[in-house]
Computed example of a mutant assay.
Amino acid sequence: MFNKITSFVTTALVVSGVALAAPRSTNLEARAEQASPNIQVCTGAVGVGCITIPISSPSCISFTQGLSFLNKEVSSAVVPGGFVCTFFEQSGCLSAQGGADAVVLQGGSWNFITGVSGTASTVNFNDLSSSFICSPV
């Protein structure tokens, strides 16, 4: 009788432990994604020559500093949902042409060669970016 009770209790604990473990890991992964969103910036099409950069809103990321290999080389980007990122031709997230030298991208995959949203129209922004800044929508 004692062995049957011990076996039952052990089985119940194992089953409940498995049931509780799965949702916890899913919640932790979701929280980690929310806590540290990332943008993917690529020197080719999406998935080619890419680097993942954490977004620390609203901080400017200049490619003339530690990311100089990206300066004037960006061809695509993947912006996380819920964020808007502005890419600038100038470093320091500055516009020298009243915004005509910048593009604004909302969450999604963007190909700079085929065109992205400029201030007046869709523009080819391939190999022009020197900096970007992102913020939540």
Rank of each mutant, 00 (worst) to 15 (best):
K4Y: 10
S7Q: 09
F8E: 04
T10I: 13
T11Q: 07
A12Q: 01
A12Y: 01
V14P: 04
S16F: 09
S16Q: 11
S16W: 05
G17D: 12
A19T: 10
A19G: 13
A19V: 15
R24P: 01
S25G: 01
S25A: 08
N27H: 04
N27L: 11
N27P: 00
L28M: 15
A30S: 13
A35I: 06
P37Y: 02
V41A: 12
V41I: 15
T43L: 04
G44E: 10
G49L: 08
C50R: 02
P54C: 12
P54L: 11
S56L: 07
S56F: 07
S56Q: 11
S57Q: 11
S59G: 06
Q65P: 00
F69I: 12
L70K: 06
N71L: 04
N71D: 14
K72P: 01
K72N: 15
E73G: 01
E73V: 07
E73A: 12
A77Q: 06
V78L: 10
V79F: 08
V79K: 08
F83H: 14
V84E: 10
C85E: 06
C85Q: 07
C93L: 03
C93W: 03
S95E: 09
A96N: 07
A96F: 02
Q97P: 00
A100L: 15
D101I: 05
A102Q: 13
V103Y: 01
V104R: 13
Q106R: 08
G107M: 09
F112Y: 11
F112I: 08
I113N: 11
T114Y: 07
G115F: 07
V116I: 05
V116W: 00
S117K: 07
S121P: 00
T122W: 00
N126C: 04
L128A: 12
S130C: 05
F132Q: 04
I133V: 15
C134N: 03
C134H: 04
C134A: 06
S135I: 06
P136W: 05
